[in-house]
């Protein structure tokens, strides 16, 4: 090929590439703009401060406060549950197992698989295990907690791998045991990473609908105890959008907007925490 052809090919490639990027930006811009416009247009004070009335899904008055509270309760409980399992796993991987350990890579692979399993499969299995039991907030928390474990663990593991070995060695040289090093030195070092991983898992938990639909159930009131069924935002959106009434569908758009705002806040918080707390970390 002579120089002119190569120059033309380069320009052509550049145009193609830019087309792809422009398509990407336009499509996502329409998505964000559509949801924001439709949502904010129908967003009312009533929607976020009241629980649904009896006729809510037929166009009666009320709001989705039950789903907002239910979602936050469910995601918070599930994230806390997930951390109590995920944090020890990550500490174990970093302190007790070497970088090239076969067992460690097997656990990581397993966690990747767990992350990949569709949440509906978790839901279906737990319906079998909970056979005959009523759907409840507690069941929802446990299942979503299990779903969140790999999310939290993999995110935290990425950070744990970056902690310099010298820090652990310094701790050992002072006579600390491996357990003390894991919980008192390594965990403290991981704290900023932990907070952003926690919020990542929280976002995943609040957005899940498939498993929650099967195990947490749905109700029109704010759950008073762990054993009552709980409404969540995604499930509430799903139910509202499936009704034939335009009024209710419009409220679904507004509910979607609320959900998007929550996700956005969580994501911003996670970034903020990470940059604020990582000041105190060991220089890498």
């Amino acid at each position: 090929m002579n120089a002119r052809h190569r120059y033309k090919a380069d320009t052509l490639f550049h145009i193609l590439l830019n087309t792809g990027v422009v398509i990407f930006c336009i499509v996502f811009a329409t998505m964000i703009v559509t949801i924001t416009m439709k949502g904010s247009m129908h967003l009312t004070v009533e929607l976020v401060t009241q629980v649904p009335s009896d006729m809510y899904f037929n166009g009666g008055p009320g709001g989705v406060l039950n789903a907002i509270v239910g979602s936050i309760m469910l995601a918070t409980g599930a994230s806390i549950l997930a951390s109590t399992f995920a944090v020890p796993i990550v500490l174990y991987l970093r302190v007790y197992l070497g970088k090239r350990s076969f067992f460690a890579s097997a656990i990581r692979f397993l966690m990747d698989i767990l992350w990949g399993i569709p949440t509906i499969v978790y839901g279906a299995v737990s319906v079998i295990i909970l056979y005959g039991m009523k759907a409840s907030l507690l069941a929802g928390i446990v299942i979503v907690g299990i779903i969140e474990i790999p999310v939290l663990a993999r995110a935290l593991d990425e950070v744990a791998q970056l902690v310099p070995a010298e820090l652990l060695e310094a701790s050992y040289s002072l006579g600390a045991t491996r357990g003390q090093t894991a919980f008192k030195v390594l965990f403290r070092e991981l704290l900023p990473g932990f907070i952003s991983a926690f919020l990542l898992a929280f976002g995943r938990g609040i957005g899940d609908a498939a498993a929650v639909l099967l195990v947490a159930g749905f109700s029109d009131s704010i759950p008073g105890s762990l054993l009552e069924p709980a409404a969540t935002l995604p499930v509430s959106i799903f139910f509202q959008i499936q009704t034939p009434f335009p009024v209710v569908q419009e409220r679904a758009y507004a509910t979607g907007f609320v959900l998007m705002i929550i996700i956005l806040c969580v994501s911003l918080l996670s970034r903020l925490f990470y940059s604020r707390f990582s000041r105190y970390q060991v220089n890498k």
Binding site: F28, D208, Y253, I263, R271
Partner: peptide, 22 residues
């Protein structure tokens, strides 16, 4: 990059809603 991360974390219900609207 943060935008892509954010989009990857958006709940699927919102994608479905966009599907219905658009």
């Amino acid at each position: 990059r943060p935008l892509v991360d954010l989009l990857a974390g958006l709940p699927s219900v919102l994608y479905g809603m966009w599907g219905l609207l658009f």
